[in-house]
Amino acid sequence: MLASWSLSAIIAGLLLAALVEAEVKPSINTTAEYSTECKTCPRSLCSNARVYERDDALSVSCWTRGTKIMGDNTWLKTDSGCYITQYDVLEYEGDYITDLAYCGRDSEEQNLTIEDAETKYKTECSICPTVSCDTVAYLAENTELELTCWTPDGLLIIDDPIWLKTTNNCYVAQKNLYSKPDITYLEPCGPIPHLEIAVHNNENGTSEVNKRDASESDVEERDTIAEPVPELADRGLMYLVNVTVGEEYAHCRKCPSLSCQTEKIYEFNQELWLQCLALGKNGTEVIESDYWSQTTDFCYVHGTDLWESLSGDFYRFPRCELFPIDGSK
């Protein structure tokens, strides 16, 4: 009797397993909730295969695990053969993990191309390759970086449109590096949509320079820090900023104060490149509306010595105080 019952239980279990297996769907139709990247692997540092814009229809055929995005590490393989985070598609009434097959252990692997680099100037690391995107990190000069891919479609900085993705999952302009990396050793980043920290924050880990915590408080703090100086008008996207000297001579000083030592003197109509904006100081007291800027010679020139207005001609001109003093830390 016991043996007969055990056999019946085994048969019932097999039938139940077969039924569950039969319920796995070959694919599920869904829609992109945000503009998002579809990647070659389910990791935020992997290159992009394509872009889905908000409300684009797509079909997903299996699930896998990858980088945690906004608290969710489930990624879905689309009908384009690339991976999209579950967070970026409309909420599904069922459960992708039970309703779709697992993509397999190989799907979780991350293969990256890596090249070392170092910043020459103060550099914003942005979530997409233009200064109109959210700033993920402010990097001081001499900050060591690891680059993972490159794009030729970034914002033109002086004469160079190439931006590179770092292991911080953000992009830096090639023009801000000491030397051009050999991009033959780096894979292309692929198409890149306009992204926002508020809905695409990566919870991949932390380090002092090129990883950041992804808690909500950190996101709020970075959003606050990344705001442009309120007095600066939206006149165009520029960084590094190109200006010309409007006085016979312009003193470039060690710090943003007329009492600071002159380190360099610029002449009338000389072309300069500015890194960041600073307010003047009288001792330790900050003087509002007294605009200075640090040039690529790492000294400060006063706004009144330039043809252009530091308080009105530039958009999202970063404040010097946001950058670490020592990029090696």
Score class of each variant (00 low, 15 high):
I84T: 02
I84V: 12
T85Y: 10
Q86E: 05
Q86Y: 01
Q86W: 01
Q86N: 03
Y87P: 02
Y87V: 02
D88P: 02
D88R: 07
D88E: 08
D88H: 04
D88A: 14
V89C: 05
V89S: 03
V89F: 01
V89W: 02
L90P: 08
L90Q: 13
E91M: 12
E91R: 15
E91D: 11
Y92Q: 07
Y92M: 07
E93C: 07
E93Q: 11
G94K: 15
G94P: 02
D95Q: 14
D95E: 14
D95P: 11
Y96I: 03
Y96F: 05
I97F: 11
I97R: 15
I97T: 15
T98D: 13
T98G: 05
D99W: 01
D99L: 00
D99E: 13
D99I: 01
L100H: 03
L100G: 00
A101M: 10
A101Y: 12
A101E: 00
Y102V: 09
Y102P: 01
Y102T: 07
G104Y: 02
R105N: 14
D106P: 08
D106M: 11
D106Y: 02
D106H: 06
S107I: 00
S107T: 10
E108W: 06
E108A: 12
E108G: 07
E108C: 10
E109T: 12
E109P: 07
E109D: 12
E109H: 04
Q110H: 11
Q110T: 13
Q110I: 11
Q110A: 11
Q110P: 07
N111R: 10
N111H: 14
N111T: 13
L112G: 09
L112A: 14
L112T: 10
L112C: 07
T113M: 09
E115N: 13
E115Y: 12
E115D: 10
D116W: 03
A117C: 14
A117P: 08
A117T: 13
A117D: 05
T119S: 12
T119K: 09
Y121K: 05
K122W: 00
K122Y: 00
E124P: 01
E124Y: 02
E124H: 03
E124W: 03
E124M: 07
C125P: 09
C125M: 06
C125N: 04
S126H: 00
S126F: 01
S126T: 05
I127Q: 02
I127S: 05
C128L: 03
C128I: 06
